[in-house]
Nucleic acid binder design. Structure first.
Lengths: 140, 140
DNA sequence: GTTTAACAACGAAAACTTTCGGTTTCGCGG
DNA sequence: CCGCGAAACCGAAAGTTTTCGTTGTTAAAC
């Protein structure tokens, strides 16, 4: 924690890229997977890439520390290196800064501006109530 | 007139890039600005780019339809083509899809996971209440 | 032990984003 | 008019991200 402090502001979206995030989502859902499995899930949708492309992505992500793998035997078994929630927090925090100047309320406004069901709203409010209680507990 | 170049036709979820969003934010705050003005705001911060770079970005954004400009006289005057709120909704919606699989509650969870004051929480809940009322009014 | 098919590593091309240098055009003061 | 500095355009380099072809490697089948 010494020299990077100054030019660290350049660290904007050095998070996962688009393709990387897609793969992470598969890994989060499968817990653990081979390249073949990941590739099959990806190409179930609209993705039209070769196995090698997926493999290369996993290599890159391993380099970046986004995934870990078990390579004692073949097919190597991959795993997300970062929990889903943590990455999501990072992504939201990033967007909050980049597009909203940190104004949380504006983000919520944008989130609820589109059509959102009352069911979802109630769900969210329930969640916020729980959150508030937690805050109160810690405050005491 | 709007000769949509083929570059953008295949749009997946390719919103504004990072540099583009930075410029849009300046434009939203200034309403209207010359390249010089935009560039000055940008380089007030940590950005270290030349005037020409900013100019080029504006050209690109004009091509993409992200900005409009008045070029009857010489310093051309630029304006964001899309309102701030609309773009923010698009960005949030995009993140919601890409990182959360559409689970709004999860996004709110991520948003409130970091330390957030009860004040902010209350603010957000107030927002949600208003939204709910609107939904009820427009209920079909 | 040899063959075979899947797996992995590697490099490099393609696509996209950001940056900047060289040059032309414009508006204006002299 | 003339020249000068600011503004604009162009093309291409530099930097990322994504894709894929080629080549080696391994496990397992024969």
């Amino acid at each position: 924690m010494s020299e990077m402090s100054k030019s660290q502001t350049k660290n904007k979206s050095t998070g996962p890229t688009n393709a990387e995030l897609e793969i992470l989502r598969v890994l989060w859902s499968l817990e653990t997977a081979t390249v073949r499995q990941i590739h099959e899930v990806l190409t179930d949708g609209e993705k039209q890439t070769t196995f090698n492309t997926t493999l290369k992505m996993l290599n890159i992500m391993l380099d970046k520390g986004l995934v870990t793998r078990e390579d004692v035997r073949r097919p190597h078994i991959y795993q997300a290196a970062i929990p889903e929630e943590q990455m999501q927090q990072q992504l939201v925090s990033d967007l909050l800064k980049r597009a909203f100047g940190g104004a949380t309320r504006k983000l919520v406004a944008a989130l609820t501006a589109s059509d959102i069901s009352n069911e979802e709203l109630a769900d969210i409010k329930q969640f916020l109530n729980d959150q508030e209680e937690k805050n109160d507990e810690h405050a005491n």
